[in-house]
Design a binder for these strands. Structure first.
Lengths: 245, 245
DNA sequence: CGCGATTTTGAGCCATGTCAATCGGAGTGG
DNA sequence: CCACTCCGATTGACATGGCTCAAAATCGCG
């Protein structure tokens, strides 16, 4: 649970992604790496505890987490996913009404060191970078709101798939056309504000014209361009119907 | 545009609300008040510019603003509203894709002073308080996401009305049963992810059983309890239909 | 009084939801 | 290796919430 972490590809990828998102320079990353010694692992389906202190962060090195709020009658809204390279911080789980973090798969993470102020300004720089990264993560809720509030079911699906692809591409876990995703159609439904059955139909409608397939946890964007257009909300509604006729 | 502000009830209310949200103590408020000298006003319908620097804040003393993203084909998602006592900061308008702040009514605001570190820790305390307040404001996007993703049209309306009432009550601009809101049904529609016409129907369905009326910009919660239940997502779907039969 | 913006109403349709059943793969125990 | 089971994906029939179009009524305002 707290064994010193040997350098491993997952950690490197996560740090690389973090350094981009937080605009760190290589020196800062090198400084950070040996200090990431608090490894923690969660098994699939378990609830993930965010750090208590608001200034501590865990960096996900592998696995998927979703954040959601549950209603008493069983409805569930998934707010979004935390992927390798993302940060878990105390803010998660305290969005007005309580929300929960749940591991979709087995998840590994390292705790970033406490950022004490240093004379060379590195501490402040890191702190600021992490804050920016967390802010970016939170901004995704606005994308999600637009998606659910204004998009059609097909557009929503495209939007989500493109978002996940772009984020995974940044950590080297996706190409422009494909990535692995441990999501069931129920996850997709609760993320997009649709019923499971309608998600299935939408997937069928995107599969026929060979635009998108989701099979065995593998997402394949057969026509990335079309999907990106759909995701941007600029594709005429008709372009989908035209395709499958 | 930059005349010294005389003490006025609006400013006092806004400061009072801020002091609660940011957990300031009276001394801090007294310290802040005379420094709020940069008054700025926007007229209804105009775009509101957020402060450039990320550490500067404007406190709204009167008026309503909405934040939205616009799609090329005319669709619009309203993310939420900024009310008296809320803070405008640089983060607004930069949520991934660009979003805009638009004044619903005439809006007045004051710029809070720059927060320099002080020996007595007041600067740091204020800074932290403001950050917490902004964070709280942003958390509302998660409420909105749940609302649009999982709630029925009726529940969405109740949820929004209750949210606005609660926030306005905190600044003394609402009672438990009523408040003034400068929103058209089109605003409501774009906030709730519904069509204008359906908003109208929902309002009709809430008006008949005398639960809620929106008329002349005045929102009246005739049955606050029922609406609060609807807003919490715990009211059986049937309770509404039962009521209007 | 007349005009534009907003609200209201009606008819009809489509997207999406519900219910129920089947199918398929993955694991498990015999 | 097979039967069983469970979970997720798929399909069909059907119901309905919410959308579109069109038009009338109402309000706010000059």
């Amino acid at each position: 649970m707290s064994r010193p972490t040997r350098s491993c590809p997952e950690l490197e990828q996560a740090l690389a992604r973090l350094s981009v998102a937080a605009r760190l320079n290589p020196g800062d990353v090198d400084h950070l790496r040996p200090l990431c010694d608090q490894l923690e692992t969660w098994t699939a389906g378990i609830q993930v505890k965010a750090p208590q202190q608001s200034d501590r962060f865990r960096l996900i090195t592998s696995g998927w987490i979703y954040e959601a709020r549950l209603l008493p009658d069983g409805r569930r809204q998934i707010f979004g996913y935390l992927l390798p390279g993302d940060l878990i911080c105390s803010r998660h789980g305290s969005r007005g009404a309580p929300s929960v973090l749940l591991a979709v798969t087995r998840v590994e993470s390292v705790e970033l060191p406490a950022l004490t102020a240093t004379p060379d300004g590195r501490g402040a720089r890191l702190r600021e970078g992490l804050a920016r990264t967390v802010a970016r993560q939170e901004e995704r809720s606005y994308d999600a709101l637009l998606r659910v509030g204004q998009y059609t079911a097909t557009e929503r699906m495209a939007h989500l798939v493109v978002e996940l692809r772009d984020r995974l591409m940044a950590v080297g876990l996706a190409t422009r056309e494909s990535f692995r995703a441990p999501l069931t159609q129920e996850h997709l439904a609760d993320t997009l504000g649709l019923s499971v059955i309608h998600v299935n139909r939408v997937l069928g409608k995107l599969r026929e014209p060979r635009m998108l397939t989701i099979k065995f946890g593998v997402v394949t964007l057969l026509e990335p361009e079309r999907l990106e257009q759909l995701a941007a909300g600029v594709a005429a509604r008709t372009s989908v119907e035209a395709a499958d006729s």
